[in-house]
Design a binder for these strands. Structure first.
Lengths: 209, 209
DNA sequence: GGGGCTCCTCTACGGTGTAGAACATTTACC
DNA sequence: GGTAAATGTTCTACACCGTAGAGGAGCCCC
């Protein structure tokens, strides 16, 4: 029974949990499954994390921690900097669509997230952001980005979504929804990236500093 | 056993489910609890809805359905109209903070939501919105609003949040997070309503039509 | 060598979503 | 009016969930 196994740590546990969620979705993340993946009794996890919610919070932190600030360059505007940051954040979330819902549902504050915010503030300052409420700007952009990604992912990998969604869409006719039909026919099919970019530009460009 | 009971319908079920979520939170919504509240065997629900996910989707639809367009008035700008719509949407969500996470996590398309979108499009048209991508604007504002409300509610009624959140905040010092500390000291405590308003104004004002 | 500590395992409990059969009650039809 | 089908409800049962609580294995220090 003395199989050589790397020691259990909070980090290893969260990595394994993240992998499970990433591959199979949140509701397949089970303490039993987690234990199996770590080659350990499920209950062993409880010596490193108090409960399953803490595991989920660890995943959220793991995601925030992976966001990288853009390489600084001279003469960059704060608008460019903040835009790049949230483009990177969105990329990070979309790379793990099954994990994205977790980020939306659990409180976000964690060391990794605070470190990122501090980094953003420093970069904004460096780029000459004059406004006094940089935090509000960051919060608004974070909300926008998460909300948009949630809509995107839950629509994309909508499990059984096809059922009710298709049924609802079937009721859309030029008679019942004239404006909607015209909108769709007029080429609403803007790619998600472009949609995001559109709102991002508006939010940043319209910010009164 | 012939107790007189109003007949079970999809609507009554979803109302009951919504009430449970609203009062006790999503994870207290149980098929057994739902049955009990309806005075019925839990399994009876399955003759009106295929599974629990459908119950949740019903709740989402219920929330969308309750959003009311502002009373039309002459000479109103499209900026005003769309702003009012999403102010109303946010109010609707915040009135049921425990139900808000569900809206963020399940695909949104439903008859009620499509009807609302159709209504918004009509009002935008009436108010002289000239742009061709009204749907993109709506999507961006919906993302922003939901994202912001999620952050607000998950922070507000953060169950055990106090634990890890407080721990993370305790690591914030002027040495480790100089910019963050300055920001907080400088009066970051902008009320949530004002924060939302700030981003809303930017997003709408910065929209290039 | 032995006591304590840390990490892990085992067993068990109450609760979950829901499949499948049985039952009751209403409706449809000749 | 009798019978068959359809419909809505209940009962029972199953596999699985998070986790409490008691124990066991290996280590370190005195």
């Amino acid at each position: 029974m003395t199989e050589d196994r790397p020691p259990l740590t909070r980090e290893r546990i969260i990595e394994a949990a993240f992998a499970i969620v990433d591959e199979a979705g949140v509701d397949r993340l089970t303490m039993r499954m987690l234990g199996e993946r770590l080659g350990v009794d499920p209950m062993a996890v409880y010596h490193h994390l108090p409960n399953k919610a803490a595991v989920l919070d660890g995943i959220v932190e793991h995601l925030w921690g992976g966001v990288e600030l853009p390489a600084p360059s001279d003469g960059e505007s704060w608008q460019f900097v903040i835009g790049e940051v949230f483009r990177a954040f969105r990329r990070r979330l979309l790379a793990h669509p099954r994990a994205a819902p977790v980020v939306g549902t659990r409180p976000a504050v964690s060391p990794a997230m605070l470190a990122l915010v501090e980094g953003i503030l420093a970069r904004l300052h460096r780029a000459g952001f004059a406004g006094r409420d940089a935090m509000v700007l960051i919060d608004c952009l974070a909300g926008y980005t998460i909300g948009k990604v949630l809509a995107e992912t839950s629509a994309a990998l909508g499990d059984e979504a096809t059922g009710p969604v298709a049924a609802a869409l079937a009721t859309v006719t030029p008679q019942t929804h004239p404006f909607l039909v015209r909108e769709i026919a007029g080429g609403y099919a803007l790619a998600p990236d472009d949609q995001f970019e559109r709102g991002l530009a508006a939010l940043i460009g319209g910010w009164s500093d």
